[in-house]
Design a protein around this nucleic acid. Structure first.
Lengths: 261, 261
DNA sequence: GGCGCTCTTCCGTTAGGCGGAAGGGTGAAT
DNA sequence: ATTCACCCTTCCGCCTAACGGAAGAGCGCC
């Protein structure tokens, strides 16, 4: 008699952990803290569920809550994340070299890894004087446009390269490579030269030079780059960037760090 | 007939989220990745439960797993943590100033917040030439010994100060303050001077000078410090540290950041 | 081949999760 | 004062997803 169908799996996984992390994901691009209702809206979880989770997570220190009921990502989560090899582990190894690079140039220094089809920025150093760049720790960006992305793509599996080529390549400026065969040739150049140049492919006022970072098993697991104003010669700064990449790779090798997936 | 008692709450909370984070906590002080069995042992959760969680968390990207079955904290968790105001948010605001401090001195620069009775290091910059310090991003340390700790304690609630005083004060060197009344006087000095000096209280070869960082509501929410060899004069470096603290506070104020708990 | 180790699958039980509904609190608009 | 709009909180019955012991599979090692 017209019983409503079970109608189970709306579109979502019904495990408890998946819900918790769906809730936590609601905090990306949340400048300020979120109220319970906002969390509910962003995550698509029922308010009651959010209420239950939020209180529990607060009790655990995973979320923090200011007096007027706005929740934020808490220090506890940050501490757990500090044990992430590809995040903080890599950063610790790389920092002295990024430091030197910054001090020598006073330009934007960036450290990034790949996740799926994105670059994820792990660290960046920028003085107040350097060219304005919109990168931020934790930010994602498509692989084909940036210097670090080109490096990470050039040394990735062919399967992954194909996937990226077959998807539409977003354009940011007139100089962004959007043609797959052009990109393929570019990647070959990167592999041969040992560094990548992204010339005004993200903004028209900046170019970046990036070099690979290898782990203890010699796999390219990260990239370091220098972003400078577009009038600087890439070949002038490439040696320093490549040297930094080598230095960081050496530290990873000596520490026996393996960061492959 | 002799039914075994329910015997419910061994010592642990039985919520799903609490278990997940108990599992994730198993990763602290885990240099390398953990196997399922190791996770089970460290967390005290039954192997089957760990098995279920680990697979689910891996599916979610919260954990990563290398081919031989060793799990690590994944990039997804790190990305979520990148939205933590007291972690990455603070770091972003402070970085240029830490940078300047480092460049001017080439000594160890540290940024820390307080959590309960501990200092938690959010950032540190150390060249290869600086005095060896064992701090690390994400590390905890007692409040009463370090420079940053003294600052954070000096400007904390009286209630919290009392709690710290009433607990035994761990000693690290002969110069570590372990007497509550001495500590109380020290804290008064810190408040009056506007900076703290920890002279050989952690190791006999180093001293640190720390200054407070205030958020948009003028609450002391963090501290910045410089750790140098014990023969450097604290008063010589204090102005630079205090200036950095002021600079960072200004950025927080302009950004309207409120980091009180 | 037996032993110790770890990972995986199975499955019956149940407690913890779920979320609609209703209640309370606050502030702004009328 | 009354209404409205929001947001947070509590309650409670249903039920499913989580639980974990037990047994089995894979893998070196002595």
């Amino acid at each position: 008699m017209l019983a409503a169908r079970p109608e189970r799996p709306r579109d979502t996984v019904r495990s408890s952990s998946a819900r918790v992390f769906r809730l936590l994901d609601a905090f990306n691009s949340a400048a300020k803290g979120l109220s319970l209702t906002e969390m509910s809206r962003r995550s698509g979880l029922p308010l009651t569920t959010v209420h239950r989770f939020a209180h529990e997570l607060r009790r655990l220190g995973v979320l923090e809550c200011d007096p007027d009921g706005h929740y934020r990502i808490g220090l506890r989560l940050w501490e757990i994340a500090a044990h992430s090899p590809r995040g903080v582990g890599l950063r610790e190894a790389a920092m002295p070299f990024l430091e030197d690079l910054y001090e020598a140039t006073h330009e934007n220094v960036q450290l990034a890894v790949r996740d799926a089809h994105d670059v994820v920025y792990i660290e960046h150093i920028a003085g107040r004087r350097a060219v304005g760049v919109r990168t931020q720790v934790g930010l994602r960006f498509p692989l084909h446009a940036t210097g670090v992305g080109l490096v990470l793509l050039a040394f990735a599996d062919e399967a992954l390269q194909d996937e990226v080529m077959n998807a539409p390549l977003a354009g940011f400026t007139p100089k962004t490579i959007q043609d797959p065969s052009l990109l393929r040739r570019k990647l070959a150049d990167v592999r041969q030269q040992g560094f990548a140049v992204s010339d005004r492919q993200v903004t028209m006022d900046a170019l970046s030079v990036a070099a690979p970072i290898r782990d203890a098993e010699d796999a390219v697991v990260a990239a370091v780059s220098l972003v400078v104003t577009a009038n600087v010669s890439p070949t002038a700064i490439a040696p320093a960037v490549v040297a930094a990449g080598r230095g960081i790779s050496r530290v990873l090798r000596n520490a026996g760090m393996v960061l492959e997936r």
